[in-house]
């Protein structure tokens, strides 16, 4: 089996242009919720490849100087598919100047589109967004509600599958098995299934056999490369108890 462990983020990102993974106009899935559980060092490495016209599938767009905000600064992103982008002034500027295309998806629809894409499901129906602009131009259909309550209208949404996925996990072993930490899990396990090539940034690489099969969140077959980094793990809202 090919070695999946790479010594640094630059080598973890190397050679992907030859494989048709990294190219101008590619679609990249990026895990994380806010700045929590983002593959922060891989985002920097992606920026440094100089790839342009990216479509990024990511719940948020980072902040001005961190996360995907770094790729907005360098204008490497053409389009974002996101559910919420509130914390980024440069994003707002590019968006209002029509320099950046944005497709807003309801958060659950976004998560399910990624899950479906990774699971080989081309489309699915959801009640989310029915009667709103999210459903404009999409097929709708009436179904019996699976858990009772009669018939209801649903809207068809499609699966998403990227060229590259960058995910963040707490632990990996040499097989690429991943374990996430608390709410840093978020979109990462689904995105790890929904791209041609998947790179995981992790806090720790543990010896083979030290992860119990039952505790593995993402089976190693989904993961092509693993790199251990020292993450900054920035906090957006540091909130503490008043004691």
């Amino acid at each position: 089996m090919a070695n999946k462990i790479f010594p640094d983020t630059v080598s973890a990102m190397a050679g992907l242009d030859d494989e048709g993974i990294l190219y101008d106009g590619m679609m990249c899935m990026v895990g994380g919720f806010g700045l929590c559980g983002i593959p922060e060092q891989l985002i920097i490495a992606l920026r440094d490849t100089g790839v342009k016209n990216l479509t990024c599938v990511s719940n948020n767009a980072g902040v001005d100087d961190w996360g995907l905000g770094l790729l907005l600064q360098t204008k490497q992103i053409k389009k974002m598919i996101s559910s919420y982008v509130g914390e980024n002034d440069e994003f707002a500027r590019q968006y209002l100047n029509n320099e950046l295309e944005v497709e807003f998806n309801p958060q659950g629809t976004l998560a399910e589109r990624v899950r479906a894409g990774g699971a080989g499901i081309p489309a699915f129906y959801t009640a989310t967004g029915v009667g709103t602009i999210v459903a404009d131009g999409k097929e709708t259909r009436t179904f019996r509600v699976p858990n009772g309550g009669g018939e209801k209208e649903f809207v068809m949404e499609t699966g998403l599958f990227g060229d590259l996925a960058l995910v963040k996990a707490a632990k990996a072993d040499e097989y690429g098995n991943l374990v996430y930490n608390m709410t840093a899990r978020n979109f990462n396990p689904d995105m790890a299934t929904a791209a041609k090539f998947v790179i995981a940034e992790v806090d720790e690489i543990v010896p083979a056999g030290s992860l119990h099969p039952d505790e593995i969140h993402t089976p190693g077959n989904y993961i092509d490369r693993v790199v251990m980094t020292k993450s900054e793990k920035r906090i957006e809202q540091r909130t503490v108890s008043v004691s």
Partner: peptide, 15 residues
Amino acid sequence: KMIKGMGGAMDLVAG
């Protein structure tokens, strides 16, 4: 106005 996105609100009210 600047649109920030719906986040999870559409899923919550639907489900």
